[in-house]
Simulated assay, not measured.
Amino acid sequence: MSDPNISSDQHICSTDISVESVFDVDGSIPDETPQTVQQYLSQETRHNILQLILGHPHHLVSVTEFDYYIPKSRSTISEQLADLADHEILTQYTHQPNAEVRDLPTDFWGFTEFGLRLIAEYNYLRGLPIMRAAHDATDKTEKVQRHEAAPRPTLPALIQSVLTFDETDQADPRVTADSCTEFHTQTLYADAAPADPSVLNADADGDRTLEELF
Score class of each variant (00 low, 15 high):
residue 3 D to V: 09
residue 6 I to S: 08
residue 7 S to A: 11
residue 8 S to D: 10
residue 13 C to P: 05
residue 14 S to D: 15
residue 16 D to I: 12
residue 18 S to C: 03
residue 19 V to W: 05
residue 19 V to G: 05
residue 20 E to F: 06
residue 21 S to E: 14
residue 29 I to A: 00
residue 31 D to H: 09
residue 32 E to V: 01
residue 37 V to R: 00
residue 37 V to H: 04
residue 39 Q to C: 10
residue 43 Q to K: 09
residue 45 T to P: 07
residue 46 R to H: 03
residue 48 N to F: 08
residue 50 L to P: 03
residue 54 L to I: 15
residue 54 L to H: 04
residue 55 G to Q: 00
residue 55 G to F: 01
residue 56 H to W: 01
residue 61 V to Q: 02
residue 63 V to W: 02
residue 64 T to D: 15
residue 65 E to I: 13
residue 65 E to Y: 02
residue 66 F to Q: 07
residue 67 D to F: 12
residue 69 Y to P: 04
residue 70 I to Y: 00
residue 70 I to L: 03
residue 72 K to P: 03
residue 77 I to G: 09
residue 78 S to I: 10
residue 79 E to N: 14
residue 79 E to V: 12
residue 81 L to S: 02
residue 84 L to K: 01
residue 86 D to Y: 06
residue 87 H to G: 01
residue 87 H to E: 04
residue 87 H to N: 03
residue 88 E to N: 08
residue 89 I to S: 00
residue 90 L to M: 07
residue 91 T to I: 13
residue 92 Q to C: 13
residue 92 Q to L: 10
residue 99 A to C: 07
residue 100 E to F: 10
residue 102 R to F: 10
residue 104 L to G: 14
residue 107 D to Q: 12
residue 109 W to L: 04
residue 110 G to R: 02
residue 110 G to P: 02
residue 115 G to S: 04
residue 116 L to C: 06
residue 118 L to G: 01
residue 119 I to S: 04
residue 119 I to G: 02
residue 121 E to D: 08
residue 122 Y to F: 13
residue 125 L to S: 00
residue 126 R to V: 09
residue 128 L to P: 04
residue 129 P to A: 02
residue 131 M to I: 12
residue 134 A to D: 10
residue 134 A to N: 15
residue 138 T to W: 00
residue 139 D to L: 09
residue 139 D to G: 12
residue 141 T to G: 09
residue 142 E to H: 13
residue 142 E to C: 11
residue 145 Q to C: 14
residue 145 Q to G: 07
residue 145 Q to A: 14
residue 145 Q to K: 15
residue 146 R to L: 13
residue 148 E to P: 02
residue 153 P to E: 06
residue 156 P to Y: 07
residue 157 A to R: 05
residue 158 L to Q: 14
residue 160 Q to W: 01
residue 161 S to Y: 09
residue 163 L to W: 03
residue 164 T to N: 00
residue 166 D to C: 04
residue 166 D to T: 01
residue 168 T to G: 07
residue 175 V to E: 11
residue 180 C to I: 14
residue 181 T to G: 09
residue 183 F to H: 10
residue 183 F to W: 14
residue 183 F to M: 13
residue 186 Q to C: 12
residue 189 Y to I: 06
residue 190 A to Q: 12
residue 195 A to P: 01
residue 195 A to E: 11
residue 196 D to Q: 10
residue 201 N to V: 08
residue 201 N to D: 05
residue 202 A to D: 12
residue 205 D to Q: 11
residue 206 G to L: 00
residue 206 G to N: 02
residue 207 D to H: 09
residue 208 R to V: 11
residue 209 T to E: 04
residue 210 L to M: 08
residue 213 L to Y: 14
